[in-house]
Computed example of a mutant assay.
Amino acid sequence: MEESEVATQKETVASTCVRDSAENQSNEATGEVSNPAAAAVCKPAEETGARFNRLKLLDKVMQKSLEKFIDIASFNRFASTFRPLYKKNPQRMESIHKQFIEELRRSIQEDISRLTEEGHLEFKLNELDKLERAAKDKPAPAWRPSGVPEQDLCSFLMPYYQKQEAYMRLELKKVQAENAALAQKVQAGRESIAQTENRISAAVDEWKASVTEFETLASSLCPADVFDV
C-alpha cells in the first residue's frame, strides 16, 4: 500500500514536470516569462522521491512509536491501577480512559510537531541529501569510529593541536625577531652613550689641560715679586 502511494506520488511529480516543461518551452518560444513557482515544483524525481520517503519514513516511525506507547496505557492496565473506581462504575472508567487516551495522543502529537518545527527536520533532511550527493564524489571511505575512545579522541584533537602548535611556533618566531631587533636598538643606544661619555671625558681633560696651561702662562708673565712695595 505504501509503495503504491510512493509510486503514485512520483508519477504525479513526473507528470507535473512534463507539463511544466512543455509550458516553459512554449513560453520561451513566445517570449513570455515562465512561472517560477512551477519551476520550483519541478525538481528531479529522484531527489523529490528521496526527500518524500525520508519525511514519510520519519512520520511512520513516530506514529508507530506513538501507537506502541498508547498500547502500553491499555484499558486493562488503566483499570487495574484504579480497580476500586472500576468496580464502582466500569462505564465511567471506560469513558475516563477514552478521554485520557485522546488527550495523551493529542499532546504527544503536538509535541512531535513542535519538535519537528523547532528542530528544522525538513532542512536537516535536505542537508542530508546534499551530504549524500557530496559523498558519492569522494572515493575515499568516510571516517568511522575505531571502537577505542582514546584513539578516536586523539584523531579528532591532534589536527587541532597541530594547527595550534604551528601557530604558536610562528608567533614565537615573530616575538624572537622583535626581541632581537629591540636588543640591537638597546646595544646601539649603549654604544652611543659610551661614545658620548668618552667625548665628554676627553673634553673635560682638554679643558683641565688648557686651564693648567693658562695658569702656568699667567704665572710666568706676572711674577709675584714685581708687585712687592
Rank of each mutant, 00 (worst) to 15 (best):
W207Y: 13
E122A: 13
M168V: 13
V33D: 05
T8Y: 04
I70T: 15
E206V: 07
K98V: 00
Q9R: 15
A38V: 00
K10T: 11
P223H: 02
V13K: 15
I200Q: 13
T16N: 10
M158F: 14
K88I: 08
Y160H: 14
S4L: 13
L125N: 07
N179T: 06
V13R: 15
A135K: 12
S113L: 08
A73M: 14
E103S: 14
P159N: 05
G119D: 02
E103H: 12
T48A: 13
V229D: 12
R114C: 03
N27D: 15
V33N: 06
S65H: 05
H120D: 15
P90V: 04
T212I: 12
E5I: 15
L125K: 03
I70C: 14
G49V: 10
A177Q: 12
R144F: 03
G147P: 03
Q63L: 12
V229F: 10
E122K: 09
K68A: 13
R51T: 09
K10Y: 05
V204G: 04
L115R: 09
E197T: 04
S74H: 02
F156K: 10
R133M: 11
L58E: 06
R51D: 07
P36L: 05
A45I: 14
N198C: 01
V41C: 09
E102N: 11
K10F: 04
E110G: 07
L58V: 05
Q9G: 05
F82Y: 14
R83K: 14
Y167V: 00
K88F: 00
L182T: 03
Q99G: 14
E118R: 08
L157N: 09
S34T: 06
K138D: 08
F123N: 14
V186C: 04
K56M: 08
A142L: 08
A39C: 01
D205R: 07
Q99V: 03
V211E: 15
K136R: 11
E197F: 02
N24I: 09
P44R: 10
Y86Q: 08
E47A: 15
N126L: 10
S220H: 05
M62Y: 04
V175K: 06
P141C: 01
F69H: 13
V41R: 12
N126Q: 09
Y167H: 13
A224K: 14
A140K: 00
A22N: 12
K88P: 01
E94C: 07
S210R: 15
L125V: 05
I112F: 12
I101D: 03
W143C: 04
L57F: 02
K185N: 04
A224F: 00
L125Y: 00
I193S: 07
E103G: 11
A177E: 13
S113A: 15
E132K: 07
A177N: 11
Q91W: 05
V148A: 10
D137Q: 07
T81Y: 15
V226C: 12
V33H: 05
I101K: 11
T12H: 09
V18H: 13
D228Y: 15
R77G: 14
G49D: 15
A73Q: 14
D59F: 05
K174G: 02
S155I: 01
C222E: 07
F82N: 02
A140S: 10
L125M: 11
N27F: 08
I108R: 05
A140G: 04
F52V: 09
S113F: 04
A135P: 01
R114A: 11
K43V: 10
E118I: 03
N198W: 01
E11T: 08
L115S: 07
L115D: 04
K124F: 00
P90F: 01
